[in-house]
Design a protein around this nucleic acid. Structure first.
Length: 420
RNA sequence: GGAAGCGUGCCGGAGCGGCCGAACGGAACGGUCUUGAAAACCGUCGUAGUUAAUAGCUACCGUGGGUUCAAAUCCCACCGCUUCCUCCA
């Protein structure tokens, strides 16, 4: 949720952000109006309630013979209070409904425009070149007997797969390497629930326009999370956390579930876009003034992982129109996928400023003892999808795949995955 | 799944329908004392909304409803916890 004070004091800033996103500016005016209406309804109610409280005290103090008359008067007042309260409540509801639709205020210097208007911040490494016809990850997975898509589909439907043998181990190796890196940088490992309550899912901002991306279990009123970010954001919900010793950092491991509604026909081949995968996610709670620096820290760790996997990649600053509703800025890093002749997203790191924390009511204590809304950030350190880039980049003419040096310790020293 | 009990502030723990935002104890913080510390003593010590206001007012005692002029206190539902039984690893 956006900051109410900002709405009252500088609605133009919010409008400018909505404009950059290609979202509704009108919502901002509606919110201001609804806020004013709520405030006046609230004051009306509070005045009446104060009267009622006073008259109740009179009743209590009055001598017996006067009580009946006082109670009669109080009864009338009680009815008024009830109506005024209902009024104030519905005004608050109206206001909140509008407020929750307004997306996070973007950081001023990010590119505006849509998906294609990103800015490339850097390109790192050299794109893999082959003196043979490179196989795509599906072919490699089959040849090496490490990815079994056919049986995944048989068991669970399209966009499901089995990782087998070295494929399974490679994924675990990747997760473990990521976890080691994160742990070294002050992130606490956390294995998270993958089912969450509606309040948590809504609080993280995932139930907006893209709600149909999410699996929902109506019988239990639970959502399956598409990223451990959801559980990690909910972890400190309704808490006043201690940031006096620096940020709280978590490395969350979980399986992730995505319906991929609306992407029918896209990336249907292989394990690039699937309904279920594993991910190691960094998540930081920081003071708002530290958020941008933390964002760069997350990005640096992501790059360290990509480099450890010996991948060629670029980093982009996502345009406003392509940001999730909670993000004020998003850096993606995309690895070169040789057989697709393009970069594909491997990590995504968002600075959600105070937007998410305000919805989830996560605060911290400032130096002068007051409470303030924390800022939250998240970023990917490894996912199943990385296997695509790793396999394709490090393949050799005979179909074997060289394992990046940094990953070998996690695979018992194995250097190559070769066809049987 | 069945039965009973319980859910109060950072923690423990009181609380007759009005005098309770809440006794008391501990922790924490500030101070006095001390060379320093401990002890002792004094004081402060929930969150949020509204408001120009750290004035006032309002709300919050698991959550949501209800009864009442008035509810932490009564009623209902739900959620959670504990114990016992059952069940199952």
């Amino acid at each position: 949720m956006i900051d109410l004070n900002l709405l009252r004091e500088n609605p133009e800033a919010i409008k400018a952000s909505q404009r950059a996103r290609g979202a509704s500016e009108d919502l901002v005016d509606q919110a201001i109006e609804a806020d004013a209406a709520w405030r006046s309804a609230l004051q009306n109610f509070e005045t009446l309630r104060a009267e009622q409280n006073a008259s109740s005290k009179q009743v209590a103090a009055a001598p017996k013979e006067e009580k009946a008359a006082l109670v009669a008067a109080a009864q009338e007042l009680a009815a008024k209070v009830k109506a005024a309260e209902a009024n104030a409540n519905s005004a608050a509801e109206t206001r909140d409904k509008i407020l929750w639709q307004i997306e996070n205020v973007v950081i001023a210097d990010i590119p505006s425009g849509g998906e294609e208007n990103f800015e490339v911040l850097k390109e790192v490494g050299t794109k893999a070149k082959f003196d043979f016809e490179p196989r795509d990850h599906v072919a490699l997975g089959e040849l090496l007997d490490i990815i079994d898509i056919e049986r995944g589909v048989k068991v669970a439907g399209s966009r499901f797969y089995f990782l087998k043998g070295w494929g399974a181990r490679l994924e675990l190796a990747l997760m473990n390497m990521a976890l080691d890196l994160a742990t070294k940088h002050d992130f606490t490992a956390l294995i998270t629930p993958t089912l969450v309550r509606p309040e948590v899912m809504a609080g993280t901002g995932f139930l907006g326009a893209h709600a149909d991306e999410i699996y929902y279990l109506p019988a239990d009123e639970l959502y399956l999370t598409g990223t451990s970010e959801v559980a990690l954001a909910g972890y400190h919900r309704d808490e006043i956390i201690d940031l006096s010793n620096g940020p709280l950092r978590y490395a969350g491991w979980s399986t992730c579930y995505r319906r991929e509604a609306g992407s029918a026909g896209r990336d249907t081949r292989g394990i690039l876009r699937v309904h279920q995968f594993n991910k190691l996610e960094m998540f930081s709670y920081v003071k708002p003034e530290d958020a941008e620096a933390e964002h760069l820290k997350l990005l640096a760790l992501e790059e360290a992982m990509l480099q450890a996997c010996e991948l060629s990649y670029r980093v982009i600053d996502t345009a406003a129109g392509d940001l999730g509703s909670s993000a004020a800025r998003k850096y993606d890093s995309e690895a070169w996928v040789p057989t697709q002749d393009q970069y594909r997203e491997l990590t995504s790191s968002s600075n959600c400023t105070t937007f998410q924390a305000r919805r989830l009511n996560v605060r911290y204590r400032t130096e002068d003892g007051k409470t303030a809304t924390a800022a939250t950030l998240n970023g990917t350190l490894a996912t199943t999808r990385w296997l695509v880039a790793i396999l394709e980049t490090h393949q050799q003419a005979d179909g074997s795949v060289r394992i990046p040096v940094a990953l070998r310790p996690y695979l018992g020293g194995q250097e190559v995955i070769a066809p049987k």
